[in-house]
Amino acid sequence: MEKRHKILEIENMQTYYGDSHVIQGLSMHVYEQEAVSIIGRNGAGKTTTLRSIMGLTPPRSGNIFIDGRQTTRWQPHKISRLGVAYVPAERHIFPGLSVEENLRLAARPGSGEDAWTFEKVCEHFPVLADRSHQDGATLSGGQQQTLAIGRALISNPRIIIMDEPSQGLSPILVQTITDVVLKFCVQSGITLLIVEQNYQMALKVASRHYLMDTRGEIVNNMTTRQLEDNPEIIQAHLSV
């Protein structure tokens, strides 16, 4: 088997909120152009893991490597400039900014003919094009999620880190968002690290899965095939 490039690697990461030791020694990796999910129940530490990678809640010890660079203590803007885009669970669409402004704020030139631009976002997401002058805060949940993903894409990232994109959406919208993630992130070669409690969505978009128990403990690392063959494992880790 060819040796693949680990674009993201975490070694024995320990993250705290104040005195609360939330991630107690997490190690994981994501290969370039791979789509990986983290599955785990409420409060396991999934969001905290993403926040640590992004530099928002830096780990107290351990190592994070992004594209071979030690980024453990880096600030978010520097991590972003390595080509890491973050789609938080809250979506964090800027209120008071129009849809277009939300997008333009994040835009960064990409290379190649098919690089993402404002025009390309409008072309592929007509919901956003139709509302480009509307205040981002007035969009529905599904539209905001689309905008949050569009805002990640327009930065032409190498890695997208996505936190529970299906949260609070109807089954139909979950399907729509799943298709968007598959088409524009996974199949177009952007590395994806996605957190999902909706394991059906996780199985559809990612090819490898980390099962996280409390305090960021990784108890399993399986391919989609292995998980589909052993559904009881998912149940054991998701049932509250």
């Binding site: 978010p76 803007h77 972003s80 938080p88 800027f94 008071g96 939300n102 704020l105 805002r151």
Partner: peptide, 24 residues
């Protein structure tokens, strides 16, 4: 202006602005 838009965004969700590559 772009700087103006960054300022407005920063007054709402500064953390997200930094995640878009802006040095707060």
């Amino acid at each position: 202006t772009k700087i103006g838009i960054i300022l407005r965004a920063s007054s709402t969700i500064p953390e997200m602005v930094s995640c878009l590559g802006v040095n707060m």
